Simulated scan of single mutants.
Amino acid sequence: MENLNKNLKHLRLRKRLSQGRLSHRIGIGASSISAYEKKRSTPKLTTLMKYSKFFKRNLDELVNEDISELDLEKMQDTKGDKLRVLPILVDAQNEEMISLVPVKAAAGYLNGYSDAEFISELPNFRMPFTELSENKTYRAFQVEGDSMLPIPSGAYIICEYVQDWELVKDYTCCIVITSDDGIVYKRVIKDFEHNQLRLHSDNPEYLAYEVGLNQVLEVWKSLGFVSFKLPEVP
């Protein structure tokens, strides 16, 4: 357990949480958190499980590894200089199609996002809008839930593929594909210094949260949406 106290502090600071805020989020006393981080006390297994679930780290990493070193080794290529496999589909005229990822295909997309055969089995179409350039890659994702109201659950978000994540301006609405949470639609704030993205919902009832860059698979900049839920008369 040589690195345990260092790991607990590293994970808390990476999420920019005070000991008090972390206490509120995971149900552990702030004084106990302080004692763990200063190596004055050793957390019980039930407490370690709370840390493991909240920070999405397995117990072996928490207890035996130096997580700060692991995170550096897993630093994501934010500029996209390394190869990112992005299968696309073209029509008979060799023009790129837009692939649609409906809610029912969301789980499959997490495993098949870089698989050309999987992408070919999705609905694919073209949109005759002048706002869409012929030189860029687009995809449509159906989202569910009310975290991004007034965009309704079931809406289709039209997105542009982002190769260089550093070009995304803070608070831009994006579809972010993550290994842990799958497809999420949020406003993105870059925090490359701490090797993470901070994801915000427009619905104030949902708390913002951080996701490590090593968990991010794709980023798609949102351009607009299509919805079949018309506004109700006030």
Rank of each mutant, 00 (worst) to 15 (best):
A107S: 13
G108A: 02
G108K: 06
N111I: 08
Y113E: 01
Y113T: 08
S114Y: 08
D115S: 09
A116M: 12
A116Y: 12
E117A: 13
E117I: 14
E121G: 06
L122H: 03
P123D: 07
P123N: 07
F125E: 15
F125S: 15
M127H: 14
P128V: 03
F129A: 13
T130S: 11
T130L: 09
E131H: 01
S133W: 10
E134S: 06
N135D: 13
N135L: 03
N135V: 04
K136H: 11
T137L: 09
T137M: 08
Y138W: 10
Y138E: 06
Q142D: 13
Q142H: 11
E144L: 03
E144G: 13
G145K: 00
D146V: 10
M148P: 10
M148I: 14
L149Q: 00
P150S: 15
I151M: 01
S153G: 15
S153A: 15
G154F: 01
I157R: 00
I157G: 07
C159H: 01
E160P: 11
Y161Q: 10
Y161F: 14
Q163V: 12
Q163K: 13
D164L: 05
W165Y: 06
E166K: 06
E166Q: 00
E166Y: 05
L167Q: 02
V168A: 00
V168C: 08
K169A: 08
D170L: 02
Y171M: 14
T172P: 07
T172S: 04
T172M: 01
C174S: 09
C174W: 00
I175V: 15
I175H: 02
V176Q: 09
T178W: 05
S179E: 12
S179T: 11
D180G: 01
G182W: 07
V184R: 07
V184M: 11
V184H: 00
R187I: 10
V188P: 01
I189A: 12
I189G: 11
K190L: 01
K190W: 04
D191C: 05
E193D: 09
N195C: 04
N195P: 06
Q196G: 04
L197A: 04
L197S: 10
L199K: 06
H200A: 14
S201H: 09
S201E: 13
D202A: 13
E205A: 14
E205S: 15
Y206K: 03
Y206L: 11
A208G: 10
A208I: 02
A208Q: 09
A208D: 14
Y209G: 10
V211P: 01
G212C: 08
N214K: 11
N214F: 14
L217C: 08
L217I: 11
L217A: 03
L217W: 05
E218A: 09
V219C: 01
